[in-house]
Computed example of a mutant assay.
Amino acid sequence: MADKVVIKSLEELLTGSHAHISFEDAVRDVPESIRGVVPENMPYSIWQLVEHIRIAQWDILEFSKNPGHQSPPWPEGYWPKDPAPKNDEAWKHSIAHIKKDCAEFINLLKRTDADLYAPFPHGDGQHLFREALLIADHTSYHTGEIVAVRRMLGAWK
């Protein structure tokens, strides 16, 4: 029973917006003209933040399910070099992948044989519960940055 409550809470944390705005709300209706703009005194654009969220979440998902997974090199493998997406399709693709990979991670949590707290044999102490918190924390942090960049660029309500 306790694990069901924990899993439901993790799912809400990964997809919801209790203490902050959701990722989906933060990227909704971002004008194409500002997706690749790097504001003064900021190191990245909204596009780079979105892609960074996608890459990091994908890496955590793959690590959690595949003992042979090789993570990208840090930090260059986690940040796109180009500040803007190639086109609107690349933007939509990245956002769709974030949603798809999040759902896949939640499915890992819900598997009947899932042990939330058992360390992965291929890691150094990581387990599903920790990786769920890592995804939520990381995405939340960068979602806040997306909102801040949108404010800087005058594209936030």
Rank of each mutant, 00 (worst) to 15 (best):
D3A: 10
D3T: 13
D3L: 04
K4E: 13
K4L: 14
V5R: 12
V5T: 12
V6F: 06
K8R: 15
K8T: 14
E11M: 07
E12M: 09
E12R: 15
E12H: 14
L13S: 06
L13I: 05
L14S: 05
T15L: 03
G16A: 02
G16E: 07
S17V: 09
H18A: 09
A19Y: 10
A19N: 09
H20C: 07
I21T: 09
S22P: 06
E24P: 09
R28P: 02
R28N: 11
R28Q: 12
V30E: 05
P31D: 11
P31K: 13
P31R: 14
E32M: 12
I34A: 08
I34V: 15
R35Y: 03
R35N: 00
V38F: 05
N41D: 14
Y44T: 13
Y44Q: 15
S45R: 08
I46N: 01
L49M: 09
V50E: 03
V50I: 08
V50W: 05
E51A: 15
E51F: 07
H52Y: 06
H52V: 06
I53K: 03
R54Q: 10
Q57Y: 03
D59F: 11
I60R: 06
E62W: 00
F63S: 11
S64K: 02
S64N: 02
N66L: 01
G68C: 01
P73V: 11
P73G: 05
W74Q: 11
P75S: 10
G77L: 07
Y78S: 06
P83W: 01
P83C: 02
P83Q: 04
P85F: 11
P85Q: 11
K86I: 04
K86P: 02
K86R: 15
D88E: 13
E89F: 06
K92S: 09
K92P: 01
H93Y: 14
H93R: 14
S94G: 03
I98P: 03
I98Y: 02
K99E: 14
K100S: 13
K100M: 13
A103M: 11
E104L: 03
I106L: 05
T112A: 15
T112D: 15
D113Y: 00
A114N: 10
D115R: 13
D115T: 11
D115F: 12
L116W: 04
A118I: 12
P119Y: 08
F120W: 02
F120K: 04
H122Y: 10
D124I: 14
G125E: 02
G125Q: 07
G125L: 10
Q126K: 13
Q126T: 12
H127C: 08
R130Q: 02
E131Q: 15
A132V: 11
I135Q: 00
I135Y: 02
A136H: 02
D137R: 13
D137C: 14
D137L: 14
D137M: 14
H138L: 12
H138M: 10
H138Q: 05
Y141F: 13
H142S: 05
H142I: 06
T143W: 03
T143Q: 01
G144E: 00
G144A: 04
E145A: 05
R150G: 01
R151L: 06
G154V: 01
G154C: 05
A155V: 12
